[in-house]
Design a protein around this nucleic acid. Structure first.
Lengths: 348, 348
DNA sequence: CGATGTGCTGCAAAGGTTTGCAGCCGAAGA
DNA sequence: TCTTCGGCTGCAAACCTTTGCAGCACATCG
């Protein structure tokens, strides 16, 4: 039913190769012929068969995007940005969801490998060595993690965590908790490292709670522990956990920010809508999505030649860029001055 | 670099057709041969080239999912469910975002048509006739809209709206507003139709406000209008608008639910996290995603035969199912009894 | 007039897989 | 012993496009 290149060729009285060139190398075909071919193509509703093209060029014009959990509001803006940027360059995006499961992650990237020109690994939970391994099978850009020798786009959560801690120190807090995220998260390690240093530098004390599921539930479940720990301020792995925690503290009778200050990370849309509005470290997720797509596409626009080529494997001298995007502390209503000692109900 | 069917054939000493059959029709090949072939394939890391397969079978094993706005928290659970279900059946999902733009919607579905075996049109904003037109080009399952002659999966927002209105009537409200959603939304029309009937049946009065952007901003912008209208209760097109409205009312000094009751639709995760917790009509989004994938796949698992077949076009006698999923009113804290007349500050 | 070049087009191979058909071998039935 | 049949495997065409190469017509230059 659908028109093929042959139909167009017949209709416009030229050879199929001329039709092909009309689309892929217009400058090689006579303007007159070109308009005629284009007219016929338009007429027949011809669209090149991407599978056939992929078969011979070795490029599918698809990219894979693997995320830990689509339902986590951190990801959709990133997906949206990546999808838009990709479409802009005539690429389509496969989105896959791993449910925070490293094994599913590995399986998925293998399943996708043959079907895409590259994959964006977003907030991967698998090990660095595994990532390096898959990167030998398919071009990879890593988001939210640093892997030596691979193109990465990161958000500077370290700096964000430092800003958050300094904000808290400035408000007088001396006992601070860090709510850890999921095992395997680079962001998590990074935050811990920098937060610990910043707290130490401020002469304060840091309590580590984790690892945890990076969800409201995960945050809410920690309310009791936070209360017992006697801290007056908390930096959470992400906004979702922060919000869950606030909820949990509330049901324990602890008020934010009067009794406890809470800071999240990500600045998801939601963080502006809760009460109190959340103080948080804004991460440039959309920019990250766009940048990653650009890096991937630039990265493999040169390499492959007729499927049989040596692919995008070892030995190439491209400089694998690593981009660090800036974060920013957004102060809203969930942080406040340390409560006066007498009012400290935390130990009650 | 990647192993082809030929490599496997050579390694296991059989013809490529036998290798092919080992995967696509195992019962046709001798068990001994089969294990040998499988071993070699495993060994070489062979994965069939989907482009080549698509070229000859005419089936890409991809499906397209077009949504109005990935960043709207209504969609991610649906995407997630659809993606999981598809993967389960060895399909991949292209996700595309139209930014609530009907034109982008049409363009996208055309761009996708050749590359997928079918598309899920989720909450489409384009006209019915356009939908019917694209459905002649590519198999379509429509979500959140009823289109005669096409497979549809809908959520019974009509019934949900009725339950919501009756809940409000039961609390004594007699002046109710309906916050409309985007132009072109079937859900919107459906809610309006049923809500109007229910309000009339209860001897109350309905004020229509819309159409609006289905976002927090869209909801917040209506706060002033809601106040002026003097209603004591509001049913919003979705949770996002409801939450935005509550926010907006708050900054006008109106409290929810003491001064105004608010009900949303969707029961997004967020609605449990705001304060007050939102009373809302829960829609089974995940189920809708799964169902739609099933309908699409069952739908075109029979039709196509070697690309040249007549495709999934007119004349087929399959019964195009239309599924209506049930909704449920979830009463939380954003609705309460009508305020006593004296306390009515709405007109102030 | 011959040589060279330029601009455009046709030819045909290649890419990896599926699948209808034919062929082979051994067993069972006559 | 000769058919017949079933189980398994090989053969080759087909799917649609891209692309290196060759060919053609024509113009330019020496």
């Amino acid at each position: 039913m659908p028109a093929t290149i042959r139909d167009v060729a017949r209709a416009s009285g030229v050879h199929i190769s001329t039709v092909s060139r009309t689309f892929s190398a217009p400058h090689l075909v006579n303007p007159e012929t070109r308009v005629r071919v284009l007219a016929c193509a338009e007429d027949l509703g011809y669209r090149p068969n991407r599978a056939a093209r992929a078969l011979i060029t070795g490029r599918t014009h698809n990219i894979g995007l693997i995320v830990a959990d689509i339902a986590n509001p951190f990801f959709p803006p990133l997906i949206k940005a990546a999808e838009g940027q990709a479409r802009h360059r005539d690429y389509h995006v496969f989105v896959a969801d791993t449910n925070e499961d490293p094994a599913a992650e590995e399986e998925l990237v293998h399943a996708l490998a043959k079907q895409v020109d590259g994959v964006l690994l977003c907030s991967p939970r698998m090990s660095n060595s595994l990532i390096e391994q898959v990167s030998r099978e398919v071009p990879v850009v890593v988001i939210n993690r640093q892997v030596a020798g691979l193109p990465c786009v990161m958000m500077d959560v370290g700096q964000g965590a430092r800003a958050a801690i300094e904000h808290l120190l400035g408000l007088g807090h001396r006992r601070i908790a860090l709510l850890g995220g999921p095992r395997g998260s680079w962001t998590n390690r990074e935050m811990r490292r920098v937060a610990a240093a910043a707290v130490r530098a401020g002469g304060a004390e840091l309590t580590l709670l984790g690892p945890n599921q990076p969800t409201e539930t995960g945050g809410g479940a920690l309310a009791e522990q936070v209360r017992r720990s006697g801290v007056t301020a908390v930096l959470a792995y992400n906004d979702l956990m922060a919000i869950g925690l606030i909820e949990g503290l509330d049901s324990l009778g602890l008020r934010v920010p009067q009794d406890v200050s809470v800071i999240g990370v990500d600045d998801i849309a939601l963080s502006r809508l809760t009460r109190p509005k959340l103080t948080t470290v804004a991460t440039p997720t959309a920019a990250a999505g766009r940048t990653a797509v650009d890096m991937l596409l630039q990265h493999d626009s040169d390499a492959p030649r007729g499927a049989r080529g040596r692919g995008a494997v070892a030995g190439d001298r491209r400089t694998t860029a690593q981009v660090m995007l800036q974060t920013e502390l957004v102060v809203r209503d969930s942080t406040g001055p340390v409560p006066p000692p007498g009012r400290d109900v935390a130990g009650a």
